[in-house]
Simulated assay, not measured.
Amino acid sequence: MTNTETGSAFLSEGEERRRRIVSAARRAGSVSVTAIAADLGVSRETVRRDLGTLERRGLVRRTHGGAFPVESAGYETTLAFRTGMHVPEKTRIAAAAAELLGDAETVFVDEGYTPQLIAEALPDGRPLTVITASLTAAQGLAARPGMTVLLLGGRVRGGTMSTADHWAARMLSGFVIDLAYVGASGISREYGLTTPDPTAGEVKRQAVRVSRRRVFTGVYSKFGAVSFCRFADARAFDTIITDSRLPQSEARRYALFGPEVLRV
Rank of each mutant, 00 (worst) to 15 (best):
residue 153 G to Y: 00
residue 141 L to V: 01
residue 140 G to W: 07
residue 112 G to H: 09
residue 137 A to L: 03
residue 98 A to P: 12
residue 91 T to R: 15
residue 97 A to D: 00
residue 105 E to N: 06
residue 149 V to Y: 08
residue 126 R to V: 05
residue 88 P to S: 07
residue 99 E to H: 12
residue 141 L to M: 00
residue 94 A to I: 10
residue 133 A to R: 05
residue 151 L to H: 11
residue 140 G to F: 04
residue 125 G to Y: 11
residue 144 R to A: 11
residue 153 G to M: 07
residue 117 L to F: 06
residue 140 G to E: 09
residue 100 L to I: 01
residue 129 T to V: 13
residue 153 G to L: 10
residue 117 L to M: 15
residue 103 D to A: 15
residue 139 Q to V: 06
residue 110 D to S: 10
residue 94 A to M: 10
residue 97 A to K: 02
residue 97 A to C: 02
residue 122 L to Y: 09
residue 97 A to V: 14
residue 100 L to D: 11
residue 87 V to T: 09
residue 89 E to D: 07
residue 110 D to M: 09
residue 153 G to A: 05
residue 153 G to V: 04
residue 103 D to W: 13
residue 149 V to A: 08
residue 103 D to R: 15
residue 118 I to Y: 11
residue 120 E to P: 00
residue 150 L to M: 14
residue 92 R to W: 07
residue 144 R to D: 10
residue 87 V to N: 13
residue 99 E to W: 00
residue 106 T to H: 04
residue 106 T to A: 08
residue 123 P to N: 01
residue 144 R to F: 10
residue 154 G to Y: 03
residue 150 L to Y: 14
residue 135 L to N: 00
residue 151 L to Q: 09
residue 122 L to V: 06
residue 143 A to P: 10
residue 124 D to A: 10
residue 132 T to N: 04
residue 150 L to I: 15
residue 127 P to N: 07
residue 96 A to T: 09
residue 122 L to D: 00
residue 110 D to N: 12
residue 136 T to K: 09
residue 139 Q to E: 14
residue 120 E to M: 13
residue 145 P to I: 03
residue 135 L to S: 00
residue 145 P to K: 07
residue 134 S to E: 07
residue 129 T to C: 15
residue 137 A to K: 05
residue 154 G to K: 04
residue 121 A to M: 06
residue 154 G to I: 07
residue 140 G to C: 08
residue 114 T to R: 03
residue 99 E to N: 14
residue 146 G to R: 02
residue 107 V to Y: 11
residue 120 E to D: 15
residue 92 R to M: 10
residue 90 K to R: 07
residue 126 R to N: 08
residue 94 A to D: 10
residue 95 A to H: 15
residue 135 L to K: 05
residue 136 T to P: 12
residue 132 T to P: 08
residue 98 A to E: 06
residue 109 V to F: 04
residue 112 G to V: 11
residue 103 D to H: 13
residue 118 I to H: 04
residue 143 A to K: 12
residue 134 S to P: 04
residue 137 A to V: 06
residue 92 R to H: 12
residue 100 L to T: 13
residue 133 A to W: 02
residue 127 P to Q: 06
residue 135 L to V: 02
residue 125 G to W: 01
residue 117 L to R: 15
residue 144 R to K: 06
residue 125 G to K: 05
residue 119 A to R: 12
residue 92 R to V: 11
residue 101 L to M: 02
residue 89 E to A: 14
residue 130 V to D: 03
residue 124 D to V: 11
residue 130 V to S: 12
residue 131 I to Y: 09
residue 136 T to V: 15
residue 104 A to G: 00
residue 149 V to L: 11
residue 125 G to D: 11
residue 90 K to W: 04
residue 111 E to T: 15
residue 142 A to I: 11
residue 95 A to G: 09
residue 87 V to A: 13
residue 133 A to D: 13
residue 116 Q to A: 14
residue 89 E to V: 04
residue 146 G to E: 10
residue 125 G to C: 10
residue 143 A to D: 14
residue 95 A to L: 14
residue 108 F to R: 02
residue 152 L to E: 02
residue 132 T to G: 08
residue 141 L to R: 01
residue 141 L to S: 04
residue 124 D to Q: 12
residue 141 L to F: 07
residue 115 P to E: 05
residue 117 L to K: 14
residue 101 L to V: 02
residue 128 L to E: 12
residue 93 I to A: 03
residue 124 D to P: 05
residue 117 L to D: 12
